[in-house]
């Protein structure tokens, strides 16, 4: 699950591959993996059933 939507990736894909597939530039984003801040690198391998939240900055006051 990514930001509430289901996505299917080849087995063994890492976070970098997920960002590429979703066309998300890896600058100024943060990732939560299964409700915890992911502090490691983008080479972290995803497991089936992982919940991923990807956030970034938007305009705000």
């Amino acid at each position: 699950m990514v930001n509430g939507d289901e996505h299917t990736l080849p087995l063994g894909s890492d976070l970098a591959a997920l960002l590429r597939v979703l066309d998300i530039p890896p600058r100024h984003i943060a990732i939560e993996l299964n409700s915890a801040l992911h502090e490691g690198g983008l080479e972290h391998r995803l497991e089936p059933g992982d919940h991923v939240e990807i956030v970034r900055f938007v305009g705000g006051g």
């Binding site: 930001n3 998300i24 984003i29 990807i54 956030v55 970034r56 938007v58 705000g60």
Partner: peptide, 11 residues
């Protein structure tokens, strides 16, 4: 600025 989920339709 604010922080929001990336919009997967407008990444």
């Amino acid at each position: 600025v604010a922080l929001r989920r990336v919009d997967l339709h407008d990444p």
